[in-house]
Design a protein around this nucleic acid. Structure first.
Lengths: 201, 201
DNA sequence: GTCTATAGGTTGATAGAC
DNA sequence: GTCTATCAACCTATAGAC
């Protein structure tokens, strides 16, 4: 990985609130998220939440960080010394061929949060950073592959952006459409893309 | 195009309400969308809106159709007889190199709506249909190119899904991050992909 | 068709007791 | 730290006059 984002440590109480927010989001979506709903999931009163967070906005920003941490923990990867395998590994983390329920849920929550980035600057900056890090991770692998002679002499940055956009698009479609086959087809096509665009001879 | 979706005709009053909803969404986002806000944009009372729509949900479903119509009108394309040019044309419509303000706004509104597809079945079906049509449009162009001998003998469906996912991902990033360069780089990379994956030497 | 007025509910947030 | 009780502001939706 390129950056080890310093991970914030959550108090037990905060973590429980974040977990309750996560469940409330899954059940009611971002538009239906309220302090009452979070309190209900938490099994405590609304005032208990306001003891830990001054305002709903603060809680939301904290939760954004929480969800992002969780996502990046999922993607984190010890890079080996085979660029092709590393690339496959990252792609599988981002766009699993058969996502389990946990992965689907996290993606669903992230899509809800990310849509807020259209109008909210704080959210926008966070997702900008996420994409920046992912692009850098992919670019580094491609660069290493070129140096080692495994990959052709392509523009690493261009290829990284291409792969990232494709993976993001397929994940987006998976979360917002019923086209299950589409995501699978895209996954296959990325492998084929890496092969024909990057592999020597 | 593959399907000429039968376009609904809106009464003048309905169209004004849809237009007001559009503006309200741009200003306050989906989470902040209320009948009061729409009424304010419309310059009429809330009751005037309830005369035309029984419930907020009905209005939302109508607006979804309205926004989708507008989007598909933007993408609609007279196909020429040059597959390569047709492909470029569709991609430019979906992911313009330099989107004007109107295009950006429509994309922003659509991202807001699409995130609702995670939890709302009606929205999900609409966006499934949109992606289905776009994939079919691209696939048809690729198939024609193969028959004509302009393109290599690839799997048209796989290539179509790849291009669609990439375009969607870049557009998504454009609407939700500050990474302007990323969208541009992806646009360029798609041209390069078409060239190396499809063009006969 | 559009208005004002209003009903009935939920929201975010606070005060004060324990 | 957590509770109950409460607040003003907002929400969706309707009734009834014009």
């Amino acid at each position: 990985m390129v950056t080890d984002a310093p991970e914030r440590d959550w108090s037990a109480a905060e973590e429980e609130i974040m977990e309750a927010t996560y469940r409330a989001l899954l059940e009611h979506g971002y538009a239906g998220l309220s302090i009452s709903r979070i309190a209900a999931e938490l099994g405590k009163s609304k005032a208990a939440i306001y003891y830990h967070y001054d305002a709903k906005d603060d809680l939301l920003v904290a939760f954004l960080e929480f969800a992002v941490d969780r996502f990046e923990a999922t993607v984190a990867t010890e890079t080996g010394d085979e660029p092709t395998a590393d690339l496959e590994h990252v792609v599988e983390k981002l766009l699993p061929l058969q996502p389990d329920e946990e992965q689907r849920q996290l993606q669903a929550v992230l899509v809800g949060l990310r849509s807020q980035a259209v109008t909210n600057g704080v959210f926008r900056e966070q997702f900008t950073r996420i994409d920046e890090r992912l692009a850098a991770t992919i670019r580094d692998i491609v660069e290493r592959g070129i140096e080692e002679g495994t990959f052709r002499d392509v523009d690493p940055s261009r290829v990284a952006e291409h792969i990232l956009a494709t993976v993001n698009g397929a994940m987006y479609a998976r979360a917002t459409t019923g086209r299950e086959g589409a995501a699978a087809a895209t996954r296959v096509s990325i492998a084929s893309y890496v092969d024909s665009e990057l592999r020597r001879d």
